[in-house]
Amino acid sequence: MIQLRPRTDLFENGVLQSMESRALTYLRSGLPIHLRGPAGTGKTTLAIQIAARLGRPTILITGDGWFTAQNLIGRETGTKSKQVVDNYVHSVKKIQTEVSAVWSDDALTRAVSEGYTLVYDEFTRSPPQANNPLLAAFEERMLIVPGGARRERVVQAHPSFRAILTSNPEDYAGVTAPQDALIDRMITFDLDNHDRDTEVGIVSNRSRLDQLRASRIVDLIRALRGSPFLKQSPSMRSAIMIARITVTEDLTVGAQDPRFLQLCLDVLESKTSGIDPKIRNGFRTHLVDLVRSICASQSAENAA
C-alpha cells in the first residue's frame, strides 16, 4: 500500500485532461475504470495519476499467468496453537490444545475492507477464473472470503473503495480474453495511439527534447506503424527511448548523423518480421529513406 501524489511533470492537453476528468467522475460514483490499449500508450502512467488524484492509499498489482483468486483475496499462511493448562484440582492436570488457521488478506480484500484504491495493471494476463472475485466486488460491493475450518466471512466494501484496471489487446502474447460479465461491470476507455500533437508533447516532455527533434522522431515512429518490414508495431515508448538518448548524446535527428541512424536501428530492428538478412537490409534502407523524407519535408515547411 502506498500513498501516491499527482505528478506535475506529465504532459497534459485537452484530450488527456478530458479523459482523466471523466474517469475521476465515474470513479467517484463508485464505478471501476478500465484503460485498454496497445503497449506504450501510457495506460499505467494514466492509471497511477488518476489513482493519485483520488487521494486515497493505493495498492498496485500486476497480472500474471500464475495468478489465482488467492492472490486477490488471500490465503491461509499457517496455523497457530493455543494451549490451556487447568490445575484447578491439585491432583489433576488438564491440558487443552486448540489449533486454528492463520489467514492473511491480500490486495483486493485489503482494498475493499479499508477503502483503498486498487490499480490492477494488465489484469488480462491473469487467467480469467483468477479474476472471479472482482465480479462481486464491483457489482455487489462485497467479498466472500474463506476462512479457517471452512468458515466464510462477508466483507462489505468501504465507501471509498475504487478500482482501476488496465489491459492490452487480446492479440498480445500472454493475454487472455476477459469475461464479458467483468467487462460489463466497468467503464472502458480505449487508448489507441494518440494523435500526432499529443505524441509529440508526451515524447518531448518525457525526454526533455525540443519539439522540433521530438516531432521528427514521432513522425518516424508513426510512419513505421503498419510497415511490412515490422512484425511488432513500434509504440510511443520506442520514440521516448530514441528521444532520451538523442538528448544525452546531443544527436542530430537526421540521416547525416550515423549515430542517430544506428540508435534507431538498435531500438527498432528487433521488431522486424524475422532474422532474414534480406528483411533486415530492406528495413535499414527503408528507415534511412524515411528519416531523409521526414527531415526534408519539415525543412520545406519551415522555409515556407
Rank of each mutant, 00 (worst) to 15 (best):
G78V: 07
S91N: 11
V99G: 03
V84N: 06
S100V: 14
G115C: 03
D86S: 10
T117W: 00
D121G: 06
T109D: 00
Y120C: 01
V92T: 14
I95G: 07
D105S: 12
S91A: 12
V99M: 08
T77N: 05
V112A: 02
K80A: 10
E76C: 10
L108Y: 01
I95N: 13
G115E: 03
W103L: 08
Q96R: 12
S104P: 00
A111C: 11
G78F: 06
K82M: 12
H90Y: 05
V85E: 07
K94G: 03
V92Q: 12
E114V: 08
T79I: 12
N87W: 04
K93C: 08
K93W: 00
K93M: 10
V119Q: 00
S91T: 10
E114A: 14
D86A: 03
Q83I: 15
S113C: 05
V102T: 09
N87R: 08
S113M: 10
K93D: 00
K93F: 01
V89C: 08
T97I: 13
K80V: 13
Q83M: 15
A101G: 07
N87K: 08
V84F: 10
S104C: 05
T77F: 01
T117G: 04
E76P: 01
L118R: 01
K93H: 07
I95T: 13
Q96S: 14
T109G: 00
K94V: 07
T117F: 04
K82I: 14
T109H: 01
V99N: 09
T97R: 13
L108A: 02
G78A: 08
Y120Q: 01
V85I: 15
E114T: 11
V112T: 04
G78H: 06
D121F: 11
V112N: 01
S113L: 05
S81M: 11
A107V: 15
V102D: 04
Q96F: 04
A111P: 07
H90C: 06
S113N: 07
D106S: 14
S81N: 06
V119I: 11
V99R: 11
N87Q: 03
Y120A: 02
V92R: 14
Y116F: 13
W103G: 03
K80W: 05
E76R: 13
D86Q: 07
L108S: 02
S113I: 03
Q96Y: 06
K80L: 06
Y116I: 02
Q96H: 13
T79K: 14
H90I: 06
D105T: 13
S113R: 13
G115I: 02
Y116S: 00
V102L: 14
G115F: 05
L108K: 03
D86W: 05
H90D: 12
E76A: 08
E98L: 15
T117V: 15
Y120G: 02
S100E: 15
E98A: 15
Q83K: 13
K94P: 03
V112Y: 02
V99F: 05
A101K: 06
E98F: 12
Q96G: 02
K82A: 14
V99K: 10
D86M: 05
N87M: 06
N87Y: 04
T79C: 10
D105K: 11
A101N: 09
V85R: 08
K82C: 07
K80T: 07
W103T: 03
K80P: 00
V85L: 11
